[in-house]
Design a protein around this nucleic acid. Structure first.
Lengths: 249, 249
DNA sequence: TCTGTACTTTGATTTGCGTCAAACGGGTGG
DNA sequence: CCACCCGTTTGACGCAAATCAAAGTACAGA
């Protein structure tokens, strides 16, 4: 009991540890991209704490007051929107260096929920202060706009996928997207661990979990990938690409 | 021939007519929202020309250099993205007061194409200058961020629709969305003219044109709407809402 | 270590939407 | 005013993915 409590105190003190952007190895992927070292230090002063989020915990819920955006420092998240009738849909998966909460800027509340898919850490960036700072630093302002716009472009890609691709194409595109993002972070592009369940993949891709599972099996039978539960190995990247490109069938 | 040339000159001079935001009856829907009159005048100075776009003409193509965003002054547009294999998908329809080209901010080129669905006029807003101005005017900066974020939220709505709704639900949601936007512009919420074809609706909603047509007919048979070609009359708004809310069937 | 639970896989069957096809209607240009 | 063409409607049929069902597997907590 007492050891549990002290562990908690320890973890709280760790939570409030300052983590400077200037020291962060993700800075080239994240918000500080392109800033001079002086400018990065000004950004540092905004980011007061990192926050730990345990697997399964929410970083924020839809409806929560919007105050900050979050940069994923370590770990893996999903965001999802809820429909009034109870249906929900995963709108994205976020990994290290990616931003969470951009949808909240439009109003005063978050419009989706963010859940950690593994134990994670995020940097909270108070948005009002970020706006002030970006008025002062054109490079930061430009980058913030690009980040917001990139999110729109990304969503268009998903809309394309949901609106005009078949199950195999969707899953192939999904795997290639993950692969590329892992690669950009220094991990293997061909072998990785899925942090999400088949159901979450299905929700994101507009498919049922059984379809996701079956399609993984088909890919394996075709020698495109090897699947063992959540462990994926891409055997034929080009083959996956071909699958998407081929016209309508 | 010569009369054609002089008509062109005339149209060019009309094109370069200055249309001030401060005089525009859309300013409460559009970028100047919330600005003081002094600030609106500063915004005026950015917007050098309005541009006419005839029905069927492109405002910009995917791949065009990105320099400006556009505010629809009159008319109706669609935007679409192209896949390498030739498939394309409509990503949105834009009416008066709405902005076009936000996806281009992420890079140096537009990522989708914008086509006028009826003779239209737009205000071109040079983006680099807009960024400069928004550094100076916090209200404008805040509003620009909201607009960008709102686009993300809107796209999440479409993803929801494409990923987890059935054909009838998609079309009902589409009609209700149009209805509301017409209402916000002072037009009838219950009776309007569709500017797009069944195929374009289908492309946007991830359905084939035959399915769109059939679903319209079903709605009409159920007394929810009345359809005559492109003329729509909503007879039972609540019924359309119910259709979306009801769980899974 | 054992047990329960959550996740995954696979099979059988159903169904909503796509595809193919043909007829119809309205607006546009000659 | 007429004829053509594009867009729309409607029907018949097929298929991809959903649904229903059941067995198998991994992992967390007792």
């Amino acid at each position: 009991m007492s050891s549990g409590t002290s562990a908690k105190v320890l973890s709280l003190s760790l939570n409030s540890l300052k983590v400077a952007c200037s020291q962060c190895n993700l800075r080239e992927l994240c918000l500080p991209f392109g800033l001079s070292s002086h400018e990065v230090h000004r950004l540092d002063s905004l980011i007061e704490t990192r926050r730990k989020v345990k697997r399964g915990q929410h970083l924020y819920h839809a409806g929560d007051v919007f105050e900050a955006i979050y940069a994923v420092k370590t770990g893996f998240f999903k965001t999802d929107v809820l429909l009034e009738d109870g249906r929900d849909q995963v709108t994205g998966f976020q990994m290290a260096g990616e931003l969470l909460g951009l949808d909240g800027i439009s109003g005063d509340a978050h419009t989706c929920s963010a859940v950690a898919l593994e134990d994670s850490e995020v940097c909270a960036i108070p948005f009002a202060e970020l706006e002030n700072l970006s008025s002062d630093i054109p490079t930061l302002q430009r980058h913030l706009h690009r980040v917001l716009s990139r999110e729109i472009v990304k969503d268009h890609g998903v809309m394309m996928l949901l609106g005009s691709m078949r199950a195999e194409e969707r899953l192939a595109a999904f795997l290639l997207n993950l692969s590329q993002r892992f690669l950009a972070r220094g991990y293997s592009a061909s072998e990785f661990h899925l942090r999400m369940t088949r159901e979450e993949i299905g929700s994101y891709l507009g498919l049922k979990l059984e379809t996701v599972s079956r399609t993984f099996s088909h890919f394996q039978d075709s020698g495109l990938i090897s699947v063992q539960q959540k462990h994926i190995r891409i055997m034929n990247t080009e083959g996956l690409h071909q699958l998407i490109k081929q016209k309508n069938c």
